[in-house]
Design a protein around this nucleic acid. Structure first.
Lengths: 199, 199, 199, 199
DNA sequence: CATGAATGAGTATTCATTCAT
DNA sequence: CATGAATGAATACTCATTCAT
């Protein structure tokens, strides 16, 4: 990668970062391309060399952020050698919740924009070649623990939707209770859902 | 209520209706106040006699729509004399899902905007005096069926969040499966969650 | 004057008073007819029963306020039996300055809007019949003190313009000095102008 | 200064000029930003690259015009080698009155908007480096002619206020007399004021 | 490649005035 | 007489996008 390519990557990254901060602080609708360029210390015209418009940037940003989050969560899971399928699930849940608690912007951005399609796409990709993606790992783990589940995707979908929508309410709005209070019930509900899908 | 007050109510209603239609067809961001007023066959200035701005209208509209939906669901439930607490829950779930299947706009509008706070508010109100609100009925029903649950609000919250976020994916995006395919798993998950909260 | 006429006078007065307060606090341009009517606790439509528009009201208000001020100043002068023409002039000057110091709004309103034409009109009118007007009194006083001045109107004009424009700067802006500091120099300048017009 | 900067200066100047003309012909309140931009042959949006709003432009315009007037008056004075302090004062007075007689718009604009603070600021600035400002020249002239005056600023303030407020009445309204008729009395009054401040 | 001045369509908002009640 | 809901023309201001430098 030449010097110029490195410079270009840096500018793209600066635009991503500025846009993310602004979307979070002012909201997507109220963020202007001027704002983004100015915060990235680039000229307005430069924006158009990297993205078609604000919507183009946003869509790429969602994928980028979701991939990163799942990649990190999965990475930490691998480092901790957690036994039991259910514990792995709760481990990742807790990791993601912790990240969300520290970064409300990220939480808001992901839960308000993410659809299952993008999600699945995100955790089927792996930045490192040869490494298992999270989803492959999930399927293998079910098998390794001799858990019979004829609809693994639907089960995962159900769990993830439950996590993301309750996170938004409990962490950001603290409604009906804070996440610290809610967490045991969330764990319990996840386990119940798993039980429901696996006899 | 005098003639004038009736007229005013009608105009407010016309603005609500026009705005809702437009928000659904063009999206909130692309709907202008001119559009709304024109569709309601009122002058632009008249809009400002009823709402502060587009955001004010939207917020009031959300509450209005959510109230209506819950009021209807509850009404139908009362008319059907459904036995068993769990069946009542599933009955209402199915009613709401049916409504959503027929009215994607409503689904999108409610699930993208509703927080638990607004929801709870909505089903604690009853348009008819003396009638039990949905939430009171829910608590009484638990009691009448001798179901012990120390966190009824958190249980309901968990269920509703699960329903609303999976509805959005399965009905609108048909991801990962259609709602018809998903429904049995949703039912099962709800029952499991109830079981988790009640021993 | 019948009951109805009294009521009408009261409403006109309320509109005058509200308008004056608002013109002072928000400025003429930013004061709306709605504001005026609301503050006077009258309906917007009622405004149009009394005045053609905002400009009409303002013009009538200027005359009204200037008349009042001069009438009061002259009245007090008559009560104090001040000897000497020059002392009478300084006495009225001081009275007006005192009034202005207590009521910056009045000062601003009068000095920013008053032309010599309106002024002269104002002090040629007397609310009480048979009484001398201020201007007649001024001419008689010159004569009584055997002061020869072939251009009494121009002399008075010169003095009044000097007073009103320096008042605005020294009282409102306190530029270049406060009125307390400036007063001796103003007195001296007035006396010098009189001397210039009368040998 | 690059090509672009020159172009920018030209556009600012065009906006100043258009605004001034319009303020004079239609009045400040009735002049719209559209009008100003259109007359300057620029797009509406361009206006906002140079000024915050109409008020911002006006305030800058006042300073600009007053500076220009005083700079010109002072320049002409220097070219004419007028002896005597009093004659210098009357010379500048006459120059400014002549300018005002030819340009009622300028007169109206300056006398209706100028405060002593802005005025002083204006004649303490000099466009040419090393040159004495008008105010410095004024102080030196007093000294050079051995005129003792312990309050030179207050004296100048008194004179300028008298000139500007009488100009407005005599030139624009021709009340109580025209400026041609008034001028000898104005001269006399100025000399009397100087005498009053200097024994 | 990068810049940022210029554009002008698009939108929100205000407010004087009217008129049915 | 008095009201205040309704009107819509008038205006301010924004911001995505272009293009000459």
């Amino acid at each position: 990668m030449g010097k110029i390519d490195i410079k270009k990557k840096l500018k793209e990254k600066a635009l991503f970062q500025s846009a993310f901060d602004l979307f979070m602080n002012k909201g997507f609708a109220k963020t202007t391309i001027s704002d983004i360029a100015e915060k990235a210390e680039l000229a307005k015209g430069t924006f158009y060399l990297y993205f078609k418009d604000k919507y183009d940037l946003r869509d790429k940003l969602i994928v980028h952020k979701a991939e990163q989050l799942f990649f990190d969560a999965h990475q930490i899971l691998l480092e901790h050698h957690v036994e039991e399928f259910e514990n792995q699930l709760l481990f990742m849940t807790d990791f993601i919740i912790e990240r969300f608690k520290k970064d409300h912007n990220l939480l808001q951005f992901i839960t308000k924009n993410l659809s299952w399609g993008i999600f699945k796409n995100a955790f089927e990709n792996s930045d490192e070649k040869d490494a298992l993606t999270f989803y492959e790992y999930y399927l293998q783990s079910l098998e390794r623990h001799h858990i019979v589940c004829d609809k693994p995707e639907i089960m995962l979908f159900t769990i993830i939707e439950l996590i993301s929508s309750t996170c938004y309410n409990c962490i950001i709005l603290e409604q009906p209770v804070t996440m610290d209070e809610y967490l045991p019930y969330l764990h319990k509900s996840i386990l119940q859902i798993v039980a429901g899908f696996t006899q």
